[in-house]
Design a protein around this nucleic acid. Structure first.
Lengths: 332, 332
DNA sequence: ATGAAAGCGCTAACAG
DNA sequence: CTGTTAGCGCTTTCAT
């Protein structure tokens, strides 16, 4: 039951009203090609008078080049992807591009279906999270001929453009930091790693770094479902029930770490002397708690901005490393 | 420099390859009208073989009815609007609708410009936050003939459909709750109210309720810029510097309230005995802090879902009150 | 500088 | 059940 448009004004009617040809109206409106100042005025007057709104569906079809940018994001449940969208949309809006999105729920099959649906709109670009896509998604995207941007990961081979940073490096540096601070009995609390493959990459390189130091991870607690503050709290509670002698815990992200922090606060566990906490993402809230959270700040908004800029500029295939920043904080 | 599509397969080519007419292919693909099982198979085989992806731009133009739903949201900086989008997109995706969005930054002028740009895509509906739009926006929207949904507010006259709850009622009930609990010297910490008009409505009805009780607001602190945990912390710090004898503080939302909570934690101010704190939104994180935040939980995801369902069903104009829930928590 | 006309790829009558 | 045909509203040659 989709909407039927009521008597909308068309370009032809504007042309008629202005007493000029259709192509002239088109030229004036897009400020492209040449026309006299006088015709310009007459056209604009007619546009104003009739309340004409150009139909970009028709325009796009006629020009076979769209200004739609499609986002297939894993989640809208925490601030990470909204931040990316925010950065991107600011740039896109300025360049008269339109952002379209759908939410794949960290499900590669769903991502494939949604990407297919997106392609039907003939977008200028499709933006996805990371490198882990199905064969079908990759094949389809390549065949589409449309630009592809993979976001927030650099550990792998890009289909076209990639913008982000290395999650493996983030995991490594987190471990190195904790070791440098003297922690040796380290645990991990995380959410579903099969779905969030970037968190999985951080975790595995974190563990490798601990191994290389001869002080492997002591224990870990993985919770099903999405990351959340409550899951972080619960995860730490469970982990500490099994491993009582930990001196630091690495969390899959700041949401989870905050849960852990609150658990310690509620249980009277001294941070960091009794237990250190380290997160990932660098959310603002982490700086506002009584002891600023030790974490890694990721360039989420910038990732969106740069990705959008590259598409607007029709840049060649490339991988852009935006890096990340380790925040020492007060919890580790 | 928008993207030019490379040799894409068209419906005509599929028809040719399958040895049927174009309209037959169209019928099969949309599963609409009648065709034999055998033709269906031949068409699908050709689609598969050629890797055909229907062009929805062309389809939309031809059918003059679009399945695009446009969101013009004020912000992506906190989880509120992502929650709304999440609810909506789940419903839209299931019904083969596509969500398009842009961010107006709490600026009515920008909202107007973005709404105009959205209308050019001839969406089935435009979804906006609240009732406060410019004259131009309202006029344009009405003239467009496209469905309009105003979200998260019910205090005013809807252009078409409205889904949400009363912010005035929320402010009133928050005040009533604090009074019931015996608080009498109440303060307020908020962010920019001229921009976030829904927060403004809550604040004014909050104050009216206090006035009616003969215990008017003692002091308030308004911070410029967006709401954030850090601004909440800072706001409370400033407020307490001026008004030392408050027994409760109402915050413009949970982000701000969390900042206040952390300030008390850091300063050793006992909650709620020394100072009570009350928020708005009912974010998950408010339940995970050592003392669950007293607040009002708003139906954000449901707002998005219901709004999308009404559009998909082409429902008549109406205002849907989803209500809200007062959470007693432990901070007030 | 401007107009006429030919599509863009699809859907929707309308025949058959 | 299926094919033919005429648009949808615009952009884009190509003349003039």
């Amino acid at each position: 039951m989709e909407f039927k448009h009521q008597a909308t004004v068309t370009l032809a009617e504007v042309a008629e009203a202005a007493g000029v040809g259709e192509s002239t109206v088109s030229r004036v409106l897009r400020n492209h090609g040449s026309f006299s100042g006088k015709t310009r005025e007459r056209v604009m007057a007619a546009v104003e008078r009739l309340g004409y709104v150009p139909n970009r569906i028709a325009g796009t079809l006629a020009s076979t080049g769209s200004r739609l940018v499609a986002f297939v994001i894993p989640s809208l449940s925490n601030i990470v992807f909204p931040d990316v969208l925010r950065g991107a949309s600011a740039v896109l809006e300025q360049n008269r591009y339109q952002a379209v999105f759908s939410v794949a729920d960290y499900d590669p099959g769903k991502e494939e279906a949604l990407a297919a649906a997106m392609l039907a709109w003939r977008p200028a670009a499709v933006m996805l999270a990371g490198y882990e896509h199905t064969e079908g998604t990759a094949k389809m995207l390549r065949a589409s001929g449309c630009r592809v941007v993979e976001l927030l990961d650099l550990d792998g081979d890009a289909l076209d453009i990639a913008v982000g940073f290395s999650n493996r490096a983030a995991g490594r540096e987190s471990a190195a930091f904790l070791l440098r601070r003297g922690y040796r009995r380290i645990g991990y609390v995380g959410h579903d790693l099969n779905r969030d493959t970037r968190a999985g990459k951080r975790f595995s390189s974190f563990c490798e770094t601990l191994d290389a130091n001869g002080t492997p991870l002591v224990a870990h607690e993985i919770l099903g479902g999405p990351s959340s503050v409550e899951n972080g709290r619960l995860g730490l509670e469970r982990l500490l029930a099994r491993a009582t002698d930990l001196d630091a815990v690495y969390f899959s992200n700041d949401d989870m770490a905050l849960g852990g922090y609150f658990h310690c606060l509620a249980q009277g566990i001294a941070i960091p002397s009794q237990l250190a906490i380290f997160g990932y993402n660098g959310l603002d809230i982490g700086r506002a708690i009584p002891q600023p959270l030790s974490t890694i700040r990721t360039p989420r908004v910038a990732t969106g901005e740069i990705a959008a800029q590259l598409i607007v500029a029709n840049a060649p295939p490339q991988a852009v490393d935006l890096g990340f920043e380790l925040i020492e904080g007060a919890t580790a």
